[in-house]
């Protein structure tokens, strides 16, 4: 079955070791995610595509325990909604990136724990296409330790 990223060029896919696609400013070196049209620090438009480190540390986190309004597009209803974790992960010393976490159980999350980028299912479209997204998983638990439905 086809698995399609939710948006083009946000992460490398298909890939055994997916990486997030950020931007690096050719003028001041500022690294951001995703790749922006210009630099948030200096305003330069010379921002180049830059693959981010796969691993980092959890800087902060929370849980999303109610169904977001539109434009949220997971296809869930208030009845089928599954809470998800969200965090900021510091990738190397380059940038802190916001992403979904593979667990919504705060007992399994610690400030500073090692995390890595994984690609997980987000929704199944009517034509059977599986839409996938990037997420951060605790390194010692790995993707197998994640608690989301449909995890590989």
């Amino acid at each position: 079955m086809a698995s399609v990223p939710f948006a083009p060029d946000v992460f490398t896919w298909p890939a055994d070791e997916p990486q997030l696609v950020g931007g690096r400013c050719g003028e001041c070196g500022s690294v951001t995610f995703p790749q922006p049209p210009s630099c948030a620090r200096c305003g330069s438009t010379a921002v180049e595509r830059h693959l981010l480190p796969r691993r980092g540390t959890l800087w902060t986190f929370t849980t999303q325990e109610f169904l977001p309004k539109e434009p949220y597009a997971s296809g869930e209803t208030p009845e089928t909604f599954r809470p998800y974790g969200v965090g900021l992960v510091q990738l190397g010393d380059e940038v802190r990136v916001e992403g979904r976490l593979t667990t919504a159980d705060v007992a399994r999350l610690e400030f500073g724990m090692e995390m890595e980028v994984v690609v997980v299912p987000f929704r199944i479209d009517a034509d059977g296409t599986e839409v996938v997204t990037y997420a951060f998983a605790p390194v010692d638990a790995g993707v197998e330790g994640a608690d989301q439905a449909g995890e590989r």
Binding site: A7, P68, P71, Y72
Partner: peptide, 18 residues
Amino acid sequence: PPWYGEMGYFLTTKFFAM
């Protein structure tokens, strides 16, 4: 990013919590 809401990030409450 244009996908920020679609993917479940566009919530002020989530930011304040983090």
